[in-house]
Amino acid sequence: MTETMREPTYFVLAALLDGRLHGYGIIKRATELSDGRVRITAGTLYGAIDRLIEQGLVAPDGEETVSGRLRRYYRITGEGERVVAEEAARLRAASEVVARRLHPAEAS
């Protein structure tokens, strides 16, 4: 993946690192992980999920029906873990650029 990963996509992958989740589970987990900052809507979620499945970063993992609502589960693939780790490293490097300049003593 050469292009920059969009934030909802990043948090979808991050949410799945803890194990398989269904659609709403991913939304809830992404909100928790971002301290309520990232609120993924259904349209955004399924747009991102289908793209991730296409790229082989996420795979469907079973389904169940709870009180009449269909829930499909998704899990992250090995390739997905690698890509999200890469993106995290990129973000860390980018944040350090600023941190080093604002607080030269602490960094290094």
């Binding site: 259904a42 609502r69 269909l70």
Partner: peptide
């Protein structure tokens, strides 16, 4: 159905 379920859950 899946999308609808997620919208209703959310």
């Amino acid at each position: 159905d899946e999308v609808l379920g997620t919208m209703l859950d959310a």
